[in-house]
Amino acid sequence: MTRPIPSSGEEIPVVGLGSWITFNVGDDTQLRDECTAVMQAFFAAGGRLIDSSPMYGSAQETIGYGLEKLSRPQTLFSADKVWIGDPQSGREQIRQSQSFWGVPQFTLLQVHNLLSWKEHLQTLFEMKDAGQLKYVGITTSEGRRHSEVEDILMSQPIDFVQITYNVLDRDVEDRILRLATERKIAVIVNRPFRQGDLIAEMADHPLPDRVSETGAKTRAQLMLKFIISHPAVTCAIPATANVAHVQENMEAATGTVMDPALRKRTIDDVENL
């Protein structure tokens, strides 16, 4: 299952791969190899978008290690971020991030958590104009600074916005997701499982009866189906260091999505746990 990036029409799979915590493994070769296996399973299942940040410790280096081991898959959609308070250091940080990934340029660069966003966006737009970057975006998470995000969506010609959205964190539905649709901005969704807490909370409860109609077989797939069923969402990026889990996540990108009635029932079911 793919969705178009509104600004270009390019189709990308609706499930990507995050790297927060899970890929921050330092120089531990065994753990790096495990992350490489996760990336291999991700690409084998048709995945493309991998997301990281300079804030994620050694995650960028782990991704670079994995890409090298996997002979640099041509289908990679590399999404990284600029995260530094000093605007003058943005380009240098981006160069370092490219070096860690081992890529000549990123597909998407986002201003992480709106840090120095005015100056960094200027840099990213210049890079895009110079052909050094395909897409520009901003990120926030856990509901922070939404009114500022809305202002940026309204005023800046960005291609992507990354926000937290899941069955319990739905604040973005009323404004940000609607604005993104109106402004033709792609939406990346982080923390789809609330860092695993949602799955843990649901562990002792059966899946809703009708959910099997969508092809979801597990709680993780149910949560991902809920997210990608929203028409404004372009891609959800669950993070994992487990091959079985990445395969499970990628399966959520097959079958059908939820209709509004099932989405409503899923919300009720989870809120009543």
Binding site: I21, T22, N24, V25, G26, D28, L31, G57, A241
Partner: peptide, 14 residues
């Protein structure tokens, strides 16, 4: 930022 498993493996190798 990092998992307990990563931290304890690092302590172990240190």
């Amino acid at each position: 930022m990092f998992s307990p498993r990563v931290f304890f493996r690092q302590i172990e190798s240190y």
